[in-house]
Design a protein around this nucleic acid. Structure first.
Length: 432
DNA sequence: CGGCAT
DNA sequence: CGTA
DNA sequence: GCCG
């Protein structure tokens, strides 16, 4: 029954959250600023894994910019202890902090529980202002209600503030904010005594992989929000590249922007070719085009591993086997209607943007669209509902009925909701 | 007490 | 392990 | 941590 409850609740709209995390981060940067070290030491530059020698000066320039403007170094400083701060957190933000902390402690259960609690509150039409209002909500138990009571009563939570002021939490949060660095890597670096980006970059024994190199190189840009206008501009760039290859291809904006969000952390696009089998090479041709235009800053391409010949025995797996790529693109300001969403003091007329492309065969488009529209929590709830309530397996490719032992076909998202016996849920209602 | 998306 |  |  959990699944149906959650899905029912997530039908309502979302609300925007408070600004405390920003305040918190701002303060941290403030401290970092005062303690900033000179980025001049070249010892670490000599052994930085580079894309190629010719990129060296470019990398150096970018790294200097990065060290000066973004990286809040705490080199040779004692572990950071924030002075007592009055941290005003929304209930959702408080639960997200708790979830994140459990994630860093590798306690997936409690982590998920707090994510669900945050999601439930997010799905409500208005903010919860009393414990009574939360009485009948699912996914809220003893612990979450205790935190709620504290915050509703005095606007803050001892437990949450303890986490926010914890040096380990702050460092893991900082490290995982780099594209390509997850909880395990962050934990590894922290265990080795590293506490700042400059310490990581100066450590000779650390070999950053390609993704992490790009993550650091473009850190300032890709950790800044992408505006809807920028997403449209990226869409246009991909669209131009695609129609030069096949005029009958179709491009669909998905991810957070399809859910109606004004800002996102990346741009997700689905590319479909009318001609069956054409999708196999479509992405690599698009990548070639972007490369020729000189706007491809990073590319991880994963060719399709999808095999229709062994579909029935085919395992349901984590990420999809359709051709896809994770990109970082150079977006020129001149291409964005409302101008670039850039940081103050940044005189460049371009910024880097994270872009994901996926190219499914036309007959699997609906599943890919549903899977890539999110939100993350919505996808988990939907798949859990499918398995537990309907004995069906749902992923980015298909829906399998375990009772009938057959795949259910769909040309629209509506078809999939029908198969699951659910009312259609609009993308903007899937934010929680 | 087991499951938690794939 | 990272990515969605 | 919450639910079945």
């Amino acid at each position: 029954m959990t699944g149906s409850c959650r899905l029912h609740i997530s039908v309502w709209s979302s609300r925007r959250k408070a600004t405390c995390r920003k305040t918190f981060r701002g303060q941290r940067q403030g401290q970092g600023h005062r303690r900033r070290i000179s980025p001049s030491g070249s010892s670490h530059l000599a052994r930085l894994p580079l894309l190629s020698v010719s990129h060296h000066s470019l990398f150096f320039k970018a790294l200097q910019f990065f060290m000066c403007h973004i990286c809040c170094s705490r080199l040779r400083c004692p572990p950071l202890r924030l002075p007592p701060v009055f941290v005003l957190l929304s209930l959702q933000d408080a639960f997200e902090v708790l979830a994140e902390n459990y994630e860093f402690s590798e306690m997936e259960g409690p982590c998920l529980a707090f994510r669900r609690a945050a999601s439930v509150l997010k799905s409500l039409p208005s903010a919860v202002e009393s414990l009574r209002a939360a009485q009948d909500l699912p996914c809220l138990g003893e612990h979450t209600k205790a935190v709620m009571e504290e915050i509703l009563r005095c606007g803050r939570s001892f437990e949450v503030e303890k986490i926010l002021s914890d040096e380990r939490f702050q460092t893991l949060k900082l490290f995982t904010s780099v594209f390509g660095v997850g909880p395990k890597t962050a934990e590894k670096w922290h265990r080795r005594g590293l506490r700042s980006f400059s310490e990581v970059l100066a450590e000779p024994s650390i070999h950053l992989n390609r993704m992490q190199q790009s993550g650091f190189l473009h850190y300032g840009d890709i950790s800044r929000a992408v505006s809807k206008a920028e997403a449209r501009a990226v869409g246009n760039i991909i669209d131009e590249a695609v129609r030069a290859i096949t005029p009958d291809a179709m491009l669909t904006l998905t991810g957070g922007f399809r859910r109606g969000k004004e800002f996102g952390h990346d741009v997700d696009l689905i590319v479909t070719a009318a001609e069956p089998g054409r999708e196999q090479n479509l992405l690599s041709e698009i990548i070639d085009s972007l490369k020729k235009q000189g706007i491809l800053l990073f590319c991880e391409y994963q060719a399709s591993t999808f095999d229709t010949t062994k579909l029935p025995s085919h395992r349901f797996e984590a990420m999809d086997h359709f051709a896809k790529c994770f990109l970082i693109l150079r977006l020129e300001g001149s291409r964005v209607d409302e101008g670039l969403h850039s940081a103050e003091g940044d005189s460049r007329n371009w910024r880097a943007v994270r872009v994901d492309l996926v190219s499914p065969p036309a007959d699997h488009f609906a599943f890919t669209l549903l899977g890539w529209t999110g939100s993350r929590q919505f996808e988990r709830d939907l798949r859990r509902f499918a398995r537990l309530e309907r004995r069906m397996l749902l992923d980015n490719h298909a829906l399998f009925d375990k009772t009938k032992k057959e795949f259910l076909t769909a040309t629209t998202e509506k078809d999939i909701f029908d198969h699951l016996g659910l009312e259609y849920i609009e993308p903007w209602q899937r934010n929680a």
